[in-house]
Amino acid sequence: MEHEKVINSAPVIQVKNMYKRFGSFIANNDLTFDVYKGEIFGFLGANGAGKTTAMRILCGLSSPSSGEIQVAGFDIYKQVGQIKKNIGYMSQKFSLYEDLTVYENMRLFGGIYGLTNKEIKERSANLLQMLGFENARNTLIKDIPLGWRQKLAFSVALIHKPKIVFLDEPTGGVDPMTRRQFWEMIHETAAGGTTIFVTTHYMDEAEYCDRVSIMVDGEIRVMGPPAELIQRFGVENMNEVFIKLARAKSTEL
């Protein structure tokens, strides 16, 4: 039901026949998919399946070998600058500069994304309030527990109100409780109309997504709402869907 809501809105990411080759190796083989406004799109796949490569292309960090791609309404070949202003990015590896305070981090990224001082003040006050974190405004990041840092990093990725947020395994190394809270934040953000493009290893998290795609060997093997996929494969949960796909791959070999 939830995905009816998203299907009706306009696509913010359009990918058509995208290829990425490194020499004779094909990392992305003919990817075609759309992601809609306010949708939580799970981008799944084993390590080396090509999801990081695809995500880097969508963020403008690398260019595709061929294909038609639009992100936030801008062309990936000609308007990378515009795309970068309209997306946010957060990865497992990075959770803010440890030797800067919470506010200094916000000011830095607000500044980098071209917000005015007034906007930075307003936005950071807002974000801190949403997190219930007003007291930690001037605390150094290194004095803040890891789970909190991850939530803060997510907030900082939202400081410039991007149309799309790319989350690269955002909950890696975080305890289950924090992961749950983190996904609540993701849902709230998506409800506000921001599109979430997320990669993850945790299959239980995949079930929180509106739609998922699973990549195997550089191709998108299946795509759809988690409930539908579970039904189609006649299994109990997403984890089993994933295992079935991986088995199919090993019998091919």
């Binding site: 403008g60 990075f94 980098i112």
Partner: peptide
Amino acid sequence: ELGNMEILLVSPL
């Protein structure tokens, strides 16, 4: 090493 470079490269800088 800390993965910050990615974040900066994704930004409009």
